[in-house]
Computed example of a mutant assay.
Amino acid sequence: MDDNQHLSIKEWALEDRPREKLIYKGLASLSDAELLAILIGSGSARESAVELSRKILRDCNNNLNALGKKTVKDLKTSYHGIGDAKAICIVASLELGRRRKLQESEERQKISTSKDVSDIFQPILGDLPHEEFWVLMLNRSNKVIAKNKVSQGGISGTVIDVRLILKSAIDHLASSIILVHNHPSGNRQPSEADSRITKKMSEAGRIMDIPVLDHVVVTENSYFSYSDEGMI
């Protein structure tokens, strides 16, 4: 057992305290729990910030993606010593990480494969607890003009309006579009409803001369492409 475990952080050796360790040894020297401890600042009378952070991560199977799904309410109600301020700090920090990953993925703007689409939307949709439907709009060179969230639903589905999607594509002068939505269940296989909306959107796109190039279903760890499977 770690000798520091029975001491408050202030009693730890200077080089073992998370903040000081970051300064003197660098970011790479810190564990996920120590980084999380820096965010929450303090623990409780029962345990240090590092011990509390270890408990939170252990409950998430030491998976930061799983932690990213936690809400402020989840954190507050599950852990003694986590109030509004600390829970908000954790949630906001993980959201910043997600946005950073999104910006890095958007540096490559041209869409050549379904993986390019997945790279853009995995940071946005991969770990959401609810379903969202998005449209990626492209110019004639298959470069991204815009990406729009069309609707947001529950765990099992969302509702979309074909007319609104096409109007948005026309407003952006899009030459083609790609449909994207997520499956919070983790099952990448499309549903019958997914296939119906894909067919409906493809038919409407042909009439308006704005072809639907693909419909990509994103999960936390994988994706499904209608185009790759010859279904569009």
Rank of each mutant, 00 (worst) to 15 (best):
H130K: 13
V159I: 14
D194F: 08
V162Q: 08
N187M: 10
G230Q: 07
K149C: 14
L173V: 04
D171L: 03
S185G: 12
R196Q: 09
S227K: 15
E220I: 07
N139I: 00
D214Y: 07
G205L: 05
L166M: 15
M208L: 12
S195H: 10
M208P: 00
R196N: 06
P211Y: 05
R163L: 02
V216Y: 03
I170K: 15
L128I: 07
E220A: 15
R163M: 02
W134A: 02
S175G: 13
S176M: 08
I177D: 09
H172Y: 14
G230M: 10
L136N: 00
L173K: 15
L138H: 07
D171M: 02
S225C: 13
I197V: 15
N148T: 06
H215Q: 10
P190Q: 03
E203T: 08
F224M: 03
L173R: 15
D127E: 13
L166K: 05
D214L: 05
L179K: 01
I170M: 12
A204W: 10
K149Y: 00
K149A: 09
S227N: 14
T158G: 01
K149I: 02
A146T: 05
S225F: 10
N221C: 11
Q189G: 04
T219E: 11
D228V: 06
F133T: 04
L164E: 14
L128G: 06
M208F: 13
I145H: 14
E229P: 03
G205Y: 04
A174D: 03
V135F: 07
S185R: 11
G126Y: 05
M137Y: 08
E131T: 11
G126D: 08
D171P: 01
V180C: 11
G126A: 12
E192A: 08
D127M: 09
R206M: 09
E229M: 15
A174E: 08
A146F: 03
D214A: 08
E131Q: 15
